[in-house]
């Protein structure tokens, strides 16, 4: 082909009309959303009628009760400790699971698919369902809650650890393989260092998530501050409930601040040199 041959100029259209099938699907979606609105029981009159009750509850919340401060603080501490241990053990267990669920590191495609399926299943079951299951099997108390948090963390970290490790540049791994390094060496020296930001992020986020869900787990008897909150609400002690909510707020905020600090330390490249 010679250079002075006239080339066809091809200006792309500004807009392209969507095809028939996408248009139909969009209309179906809009119709479904409208139906869902009607089934969600949204009722403006009910909302308006509820405002005085909300006002009463809110006014009863101030001032927050201080009569059971010490036992409540103890419960908050238990909640946090459950979350810490649950997330910690969950993160440690997630790591080998994630390696099996990483396409590039898994020893066999069948192992990869099976592990992926397992992690997806664990993630699909809600934390409250795990808590009910463990309360029924190991009894009431923080142990059931901790087990539920471990499962929840595995479902979350198993997936995101695997994705972090799948996304790393394959170059360093190939270089180590070319030298004759073992799979364990490659994982430890090429994959994990490159995936550190992703692994750190997922771990810290799973800790935040565990703290938030550990509060709710108490509602089904799996230990911690949730039980106190349920009792206060049932006994119409909204001032106590307010204290508990404030404590939870401080706890979650504290964990998130710590998380942000740890992230900045780990991700900005200023870590000690290994």
């Amino acid at each position: 082909m010679s250079l002075n041959e006239t080339l066809t100029r091809a200006m792309p259209q500004r807009w392209q009309a969507p095809g028939l099938v996408p248009s139909l699907l969009f209309c179906v979606f809009i119709a479904f959303f409208a139906w869902s609105l009607s089934r969600a029981g949204i009722s403006i009159p009910d909302l308006i009628a509820g405002i005085p009750a909300m006002g009463t509850i809110a006014s009863e919340m101030v001032p927050p009760a201080t009569d059971r401060l010490l036992p409540m603080m103890n419960s908050v501490l238990t909640t946090f400790q459950m979350a810490l241990v649950g997330a910690g053990i969950g993160i440690v267990l997630s790591f080998p699971i994630a390696i099996l669920a990483t396409r590039t590191l898994s020893p066999h495609p069948i192992v990869y698919s099976a592990t992926r399926a397992f992690v997806s299943f664990v993630r699909t079951v809600p934390d409250l369902a795990w808590a009910l299951f463990f309360v029924a099997s190991v009894g009431l108390g923080p142990f059931a809650g901790t087990l539920a948090l471990i499962m929840d963390t595995i479902g979350f970290c198993g997936r995101f650890f695997a994705e972090s490790m799948e996304e790393v540049d394959p170059g360093p791994s190939e270089a180590l393989a070319a030298m004759g390094a073992k799979r364990a060496d490659i994982i430890a020296c090429a994959v994990v260092p490159a995936a550190t930001p992703g692994l750190t992020n997922a771990s810290l986020y799973s800790l935040e998530k565990a703290v938030r869900s550990s509060v709710v787990l108490g509602l089904v008897g799996a230990g911690g501050i949730g039980a106190e909150l349920a009792v206060s609400m049932e006994m119409f002690r909204y001032d106590q409930a307010a204290t508990i909510v404030l404590m939870i707020f401080v706890l979650v905020l504290g964990v998130e601040r710590f998380s942000a600090y740890a992230r900045s330390k780990f991700l900005d490249g200023a870590r000690p040199k290994l």
């Binding site: 170059g171 360093p172 190939e174 270089a175 020296c189 090429a190 260092p193 490159a194 550190t196 490249g269 870590r271 040199k273 290994l274």
Partner: peptide
């Protein structure tokens, strides 16, 4: 390799 392929987060 064309790229150095070092583990850049290590020393």
């Amino acid at each position: 390799f064309q790229k150095h392929n070092l583990s850049t987060r290590l020393s």
